[in-house]
Design a protein around this nucleic acid. Structure first.
Lengths: 352, 352
DNA sequence: CTGAAAGCGCTTACAG
DNA sequence: CTGAAAGCGCTTACAG
């Protein structure tokens, strides 16, 4: 079915058919009704390829993230680039903005600047909920679709959220840690001083699952700054002074420091360590058995989905079916870590 | 950069430029050189959208699988359909053929019939290596690209293999089972009587990792037919008679039967069970703690990648960069199983 | 309100 | 060997 077939059947021109398809105003109501009916009856689907060829629209999408952990956002970036490459022929370009994690105002500035620079859609990993909510609402009100990436603000007026369910991530960490504990003993969790919501949710989920499984309770929660200063020293001291500790849950991004403390305290094999995210450095520690498992949430796909969803919206102007897309929680051990380390290499094979 | 710009710069027609791009024979050698140089210099990339619009080629791809386990091949099918939908505007159609697992000759018949029916590429999950290798080689020799799905035949002349590394999958099973053993004791593995290569590789990988980790050895390997008849009875009897058994590795598709035997023998919590693949039924048993973990290997992506790779080949006629694409090994527990159960639901959100 | 026409970037008979 | 022309399915000024 093409526009021309529809037009012939109705004895009108393709231009008119096209006008009703695209919802142009200047069309006789009766004609419109007829065309709509025929469209429906014939199951017409526009040829997007032809459409994008003639329209030559360009869609600029901005992706705003922050700086830490570096490797995590690099993987997101790779997904963004893959989607943009796939959609390049459709006029999509995606620009990636990395802001300083300690300067959330940089994100605010971008949010204010970008709409004036031709961007039609924004995905942002908000680095400061309080600071950004108002501006996000403003943008949405002005018609700019805003997708929240990796960190949700349910109260904000966003198109949708793409990222993980942090509470469930903490639950999975608890399930795994409970099962692999080398011996009965105490559990320690590491979190943030700041009330960063995602880390807090991980701890909540962790505790809930622990009690559901009748596992050991968390004997203490160590808290650190956002840059995770001093984790190594504190964990090292703790491991040396308290032999009862059998499990450590690292809810913030400091797995590497914990691994080093485990090694330097000679506790490999007598304390289980579970955390989040995966880098080559973390993998190195897994191979030394200083880290037992790590939980990821599809960094690559987060970037990929964000661009796809935004582009879909730009095309159809209808919001996605669901307002939340939870990424998979990936349980990673020594034996399957390679697969998660270099998604890039794997997909290079697809010549993408 | 478009063909017309190139043509203008060189003072020739777009037709000639197009001819050298597409490697048509009738082009003056010197002209060809010039055009090639300019193409290179300007970094020209053909607009695939315009190309596919004018060429209206249709690419028929056949996917041949077998019948068991049902849910596994349904997930593969979903990936196939997604890729086909995405590439529909490029003229791609993918047909999915499910053959009887007990009648591998059905696959042979399809392999012989399909090329005459307009298919330009074939992906097959070979159900009988010995029976099919020769025909696969013949097809390849005749110019038909053949991709091996889920089961490799390294000796065959195939375009590439998309599926999992079974030995590594067994290793991951061992790593997990070792760590979660509820108490020291014996390990049992379930495998096939037939020398089906993939199951054999799982057992090999499982044993190797066990000894690498200084874990318990496998005290016995139970073997079954391809339809896994009698697994429940045998495992139930074994669990009742031998209290030393603390871990079961299910290398064949019979997790459900094992779970029922664990439940009916009252051994939940005192024997750990690890196997492969995930269905709603298996998830149900995970929730009852009758199964501790299951390992999947991206059924959805297998189907998706197969179609993408074949289409890439049909477009470029150059084989993929690598001859083997190992899918991710996915470690699945109670707390993250939902994400792997319904990839379909998750992606529905993308309006695909 | 609607038809006729041009054009998006590309390929391929058709002449020459 | 190569240019001029038609056409893939669609949209959008431009007339009327």
């Amino acid at each position: 079915m093409t526009t021309i077939e529809i037009a012939q059947k109705l004895g009108i021109s393709r231009g008119t058919v096209s006008r009703v398809i695209n919802g142009h105003p200047n069309v006789n109501a009766e004609t419109r009704r007829l065309v709509l009916a025929e469209l429906e009856a014939s199951g017409y689907r526009p040829n997007e390829v032809a459409r994008s060829l003639v329209m030559k629209r360009s869609h600029r999408i901005a992706i705003i993230v922050f700086s830490e952990p570096r490797f995590f956002w690099e993987q997101v970036r790779f997904g963004v680039n893959t989607a943009a490459a796939q959609l390049g022929a459709m006029g999509v370009t995606a620009d990636y903005f990395i802001t300083d994690i300690l300067r959330p105002e940089e994100q605010l500035a971008l949010l204010r600047r970008l709409p004036g620079e031709g961007y039609g859609a924004i995905a942002i990993a908000p680095n400061d909920v309080l600071l950004l909510t108002e501006e996000i609402d403003k943008l949405s009100a002005s018609g700019m679709p805003v997708l929240l990436l990796n960190v949700d603000i349910p109260a904000a007026n966003r198109l949708c959220y793409v990222g993980c369910d942090y509470e469930q991530a903490g639950a999975l960490a608890a399930e795994i840690l409970c099962r692999i504990l080398p011996a009965p003993g105490e559990l320690v969790a590491l979190a943030l001083q700041d009330p960063v919501i995602s880390i807090g949710q991980r701890i909540t989920g962790f505790r809930r699952m622990l009690s559901k499984l009748n596992g050991p309770a968390v004997s203490q929660v160590l808290r650190f700054s956002r840059m995770a200063e001093g984790v190594y020293d504190e964990v090292l001291a703790l491991l040396r002074q308290n032999e009862q500790i059998r499990g450590i849950y690292v809810a913030l991004g400091a797995l590497e420091q914990v691994a080093r403390a485990v090694i330097d305290s000679g506790r490999i094999g007598t304390v289980a360590v579970v955390g989040h995210d995966l880098s080559h450095e973390i993998y190195g520690y897994m191979r030394q058995n200083a880290i037992d498992a790590t939980i990821c949430h599809e960094p690559y796909s987060q970037g990929y989905y964000a661009v796809k969803l935004l582009h879909n919206y730009l095309l159809s102007h209808t919001p996605p079916n669901h307002t939340v897309l939870y990424c998979k929680l990936e349980a990673i051990f020594r034996s399957n870590a390679q697969y998660y380390l270099n998604q890039a290499d794997q997909l290079e094979l697809l010549n993408l």
